[in-house]
């Protein structure tokens, strides 16, 4: 087991919902990054979680910025620190909407320029801040306030999009596996260039499950194979521990879906689509890991 520092950089006075995965993830991100870190946060749940001025629950500098602007703002910050000879970690902490939808242009630009920073997308698969509307990252079949009949389009494959920029490091993680998350943040920050971390964030009010089940839901996501933990370091893919086992013998996806109100009444076509997308993704990653692709 990796030793996780006792220091807290996110204090006990946040305005997060009970069972919030975003603040849980951020807690471990900051433990791994340490105090020489600046967070850049676009509009998202984390804008609210910090608390209301003049108070803040955060123990590192946090630069809040416009919804579409995080990766570009971080580019400027990273260059300025570098010019001043500082090694300060610049970490974007953004939601899925701020990453795969409105923020994707700035994200792509920053990665193409090999900006030295870590971009973390915590993915609760909808617009949490504004009350759970669909995002490009919402899975097919999920009900949100703008897809009351279930979403008809598939989840955008942001990992493949970012991978096409050939970053030094790209990994997925999950709120339910803090050790894995901690190690990945440390590794990302030890490498030069642009790094991307995509973290699944099972969100109790958004996904409609009770607030003590955040970790259980994250584990089910990994065990069912709908969420795969992997790393891509300088292009080389490794599937990580918990997912290796899950891909050999996955738990039934139905169990994962049944635990969440957002999938209530989902039809068989959508379930089949979710399954075949997960299977295709697993196969692709396995082949990459074996060096076949």
């Amino acid at each position: 087991m990796t030793e996780i520092p006792k220091e807290e950089y996110i204090l006990k006075c946040t305005s997060a919902c009970a069972g919030c995965p975003s603040s849980l993830i951020l807690r471990y991100v900051l433990k791994a990054a340490g105090p020489d870190t600046v967070l850049v946060v676009p509009a998202c749940c984390t804008s609210v979680i910090q608390g209301i001025y003049p108070n803040t629950a955060m123990n590192v500098p946090v630069y809040n910025v416009a919804f579409a602007a995080a990766a570009a703002c971080a580019s400027g910050m990273s260059e300025a620190f570098s010019k001043a000879g500082k090694k300060t970690n610049v970490i974007v902490y953004a939601g899925d909407g701020g990453t795969v939808d409105i923020g994707i242009q700035a994200l792509s630009g920053a990665f193409e320029r090999e900006t030295d920073f870590l971009y973390i997308c915590y993915d609760n698969e909808a617009y949490g801040n504004t009350g759970m509307q669909r995002s490009g990252s919402t899975p097919i079949g999920a009900r949100t306030t703008t897809t009351p009949g279930g979403k008809i389009h598939a989840k955008k494959d942001i990992d493949a999009i970012v991978a096409a920029h050939h970053p030094t490091y790209l990994a997925t993680a999950c709120a339910a596996y803090p050790q894995d998350l901690f190690k990945k943040v440390q590794k990302a920050l030890s490498l030069p260039g642009s790094k991307f971390l995509h973290v699944l964030a099972p969100c109790p009010p958004g996904w409609r499950f009770s607030s003590e089940k955040t970790v259980a839901m994250g584990k089910l996501a990994v065990r069912s194979g709908i969420w795969i933990l992997f790393e891509r370091e300088y292009g080389k893919v490794t599937i990580n521990g918990p997912s290796k086992a899950a891909l050999v013998k996955p738990a039934p996806l139905e169990e994962y879906l049944a635990g969440q109100g957002r999938f209530k009444g989902i039809d068989q076509n959508a379930i089949d689509a979710l399954k075949s997308q997960a299977a295709a993704r697993a196969l692709h990653l396995q082949r990459e890991a074996e060096g076949i692709c």
Binding site: A68, D101, I102, I104, T130, G131, Q133, R134, G136, T145, T146, T147, P148, G149
Partner: peptide, 25 residues
């Protein structure tokens, strides 16, 4: 937000035959 959500509901329920585009920005 409530305007967008209400319109999405009208369209989903078939009460309105508008094309509703849930854009990314």
């Amino acid at each position: 937000t409530e305007i967008v959500e209400q319109i999405a509901e009208y369209v989903t329920a078939g009460e309105m035959d508008s094309r509703y585009i849930p854009v990314e920005s």
